[in-house]
Design a protein around this nucleic acid. Sequence first.
DNA 1: GCCTGGCACTCGCCGGCGAGGACTGCTAGC
DNA 2: GCTAGCAGTCCTCGCCGGCGAGTGCCAGGC
Lengths: 353, 353
Amino acid sequence: MNEKPELDKRKAFILATVVYEYINTAEPVGSVTLTQKYNLGVSSATIRNEMAELEAGGYLVQPHTSAGRIPSDAGYRTYVDRLMQPETLGKDDARRIRDEFREASRELGEVIEQTTRLLSGLSGNLAIAIAPSRDTHGFKHVQLIWLSPRTCMAIVVTSAGVAAQRVVEWMSEVAADDLTRLSNALNTQLSGRVMEDIALADLDAICAGLGVSTEIRDVVRLVFAQARQTEEPEIAAAGAQNLLDQPEFHDLRKLRAILRIVEEQRTLYDLIADELAVETKRDAAPHVRIGHELRADDLAECSVVTVPYRFGDRGVGMLAILGPRRMPYGRLIAIAGGTARRLGDHLADVEIR
Amino acid sequence: MNEKPELDKRKAFILATVVYEYINTAEPVGSVTLTQKYNLGVSSATIRNEMAELEAGGYLVQPHTSAGRIPSDAGYRTYVDRLMQPETLGKDDARRIRDEFREASRELGEVIEQTTRLLSGLSGNLAIAIAPSRDTHGFKHVQLIWLSPRTCMAIVVTSAGVAAQRVVEWMSEVAADDLTRLSNALNTQLSGRVMEDIALADLDAICAGLGVSTEIRDVVRLVFAQARQTEEPEIAAAGAQNLLDQPEFHDLRKLRAILRIVEEQRTLYDLIADELAVETKRDAAPHVRIGHELRADDLAECSVVTVPYRFGDRGVGMLAILGPRRMPYGRLIAIAGGTARRLGDHLADVEIR
DNA sequence: GCCTGGCACTCGCCGGCGAGGACTGCTAGC
DNA sequence: GCTAGCAGTCCTCGCCGGCGAGTGCCAGGC
């Protein structure tokens, strides 16, 4: 990264004002507009000189000669990091978040979806949520329910609720008591474990200890494997239609590129999961990535606000807001942070202990 | 509806050809195009006369003088009902549907989502699916699992899998055996029932018969209520970005109107659930609604293909494809029908018996 | 030395205009 | 009943010039 230490007070103020104005109007900002709408104490000619220098410094760009300036990635970055004043969550927003979670579902997948809808409504942008990996959920209970001598229902419950259920059939007859004993043994020995710490070998050992048949052992293996189901990360997105209101997406090609990314859950996941690796710390603050920082050509004119939220002891999920670079960063950071906090609280409430 | 019995063979052919051509090109069809591309045996002047009459009859409209004709709602309707030849599912499509369901999930909600993705991919339009009401699922099993003297986990399993689970706490102490006995009694007496036929009074009666406390009775009530959860119909949609490729949606206003409808699950549900009431018969064929037949101003330029699918003894869900009126009806009807059939088969496979 | 008013210049936007072209409807003739 | 031909309509597209927003630069002033 290029160092940009200079930026006297006036330049900083001008840059901040240009960004602010552009975020609000979506129009390139000219020197006259600036002097008219904001009290700068100097003439437009001076501003012009300053803006020319800001452009030379890489903070502003001109869409074309004889147009005003718009911020570059570096301009937005400086604004976000050093110039804008942090906002706190507005009263109305806070109330809406609180109300929403008050009636939220108790089921993790549904909560995630509801949260994206809430976040897209509040932010007026596209909202995305990733559920914490099922591997990090705490093991709570397993029950093999005897249905008939040759069938049972196997259920695994984790801290997030029922993670797997399966009706299974086998060849040899099994007594109800045997299943109960196996269930009890599993529950006792696995109690307090996290799903990712439960190896197949552990299950096998417990089964072997009770001398159960390989058929039943396979049932146990199967249902635990299903419960962990680590391949497809749970992810939800909502509010794509909000992007239609943004002038930058009136170009259909850009819009399509974004929608394609949203449709492909894999890409969407990769986009945000970067952050998961970085943000292992739990209550990390919202993080902003701007334009090319997203490392995706189709998103060169977008920004993303991400914020982790916690679930249980080890689980970390991620919320994100995707929108044009010209987004109200202060407000969105406040919204994302507030929502993540409430989401964490809600999940703690519905978590199975 | 106005009766339109006349339509001699030649008019019918011309109408069919205009619709066909317009569906393929998205351009108003002129008389010369028609004579050049299709072997009609008469000159363009004759076609012009015929087309003028078709317009007078309400089958065609002109976007403006000096443009070709495009079909009206009535024109499409006649085409779909009487002129087009039914198509059968193509080999590739059939294979793709088969392959998709081979690896499909066993969980109803996930299956529904996967089906919309499949259907939107195949059709190149927006796909929607409604899950059968949870009321129609068959009751399979309830288990009150003793966790501690004052807590238990209650689980209700229906033919679609685990429908509700809840960890509950209460004041007085309860023995594990009592819960087992209650579970057994509920299972015996409710066996074979459909969820909607299980009244609270039935549950109360069983609880009273065993003399369980009102606290435990309330647990049973709660978990059954949660299992039926009749308010929010499960619905999924996918493929909105396909609509961007259609020239009729390059107008942002129209696009936004559609996306708004998709986002509001309620509206979307109403749009398609009309059909659910009508199509109580199970293996009903796909049904087409065109333009104003949808009774929604925003959808005046859209058509919808709906087809019911079955789940279990009483359950009926619905698949739908939403796109511009200018959609390849024959192909979409075949795809929708084929997908609904496979979906029904798949659900029968994963259904809990 | 920094600021400012003034000025020439650039360039996108927009409305008007006219040529071109795709159709149609009509009419007269076969 | 069909057809060729023709006049007429109306959309599309490219061109052009005026307008206006905004810039960069310069000379003069505090």
